[in-house]
Design a binder for these strands. Structure first.
Lengths: 106, 106
DNA sequence: AGGCTATTTCGACGATCGTTGAAATAGCCT
DNA sequence: AGGCTATTTCAACGATCGTCGAAATAGCCT
């Protein structure tokens, strides 16, 4: 995980609408959610949702799988995991802090 | 931590320059770093840095303390901690994943 | 007070974002 | 083939961003 990639993912999550989309997907778990359901749940224009979804997919945070005419969206857990890892990564290289208590600097 | 706040913080970290600033501060640890040193390290205009720093401070990710004429900047670890917590929070409410293995849903 | 250094504020610029409705496309079903 | 639903692409818009240099301010020191 380089800094450019991390910044792109953070930027992708840094929009309220997109963060909501992402969280909804996270909650939905492995079964995922069709674009249409997502749209209903969030109450935004289909084109807007499609746009945001596209960005989320570009950064690797979300994946899609076709099932007939509907597209199932899923949160990409490992991607988030490694993003969080990056955030905590260099934490406290020479100072104590609450987060990395011995695992980050190991 | 609400979604608006989280989005603001993620957006703040979602700019390569700002993420670099933040990470530099994280590495610097509790002793922090003066604005000037930060500027030298990153090689950007002072006004640009000041602007980014301001955004980071507004979201609560960074704090400043005055020491005579120089301003010491510090990463706010607890803030990052709670942001990461938010990200992992609702993870896998009804599906298994690698990240939250029993702590998030507790 | 006067000067000096550190930092911020101001003003500007092109670039990107976020949103939408309308139109185009994808893929099923009869 | 023809129609139907799901989703994306297009075109557009005002709004915000990221960057900079120049000018203003903050606070110390003599």
């Amino acid at each position: 995980m380089n800094i450019e990639q991390a910044a792109k993912q953070l930027e992708a999550l840094g929009n309220p609408t997109r963060l909501q989309v992402y969280r909804t997907l996270v909650r939905a778990g492995d079964s995922g959610l069709p674009v249409g359901s997502l749209q209903e749940k969030l109450g935004i224009a289909a084109s807007t949702l499609s746009h945001h979804l596209h960005r989320l997919i570009l950064t690797g945070l979300v994946t899609q799988e076709r099932q007939a005419t509907t597209l199932i969206c899923r949160a990409n857990y490992p991607a988030m995991d490694s993003l969080v890892g990056f955030l905590v990564d260099e934490c406290c290289v020479d100072a104590p802090c609450a987060v990395g208590e011995g695992e980050a600097a190991a």
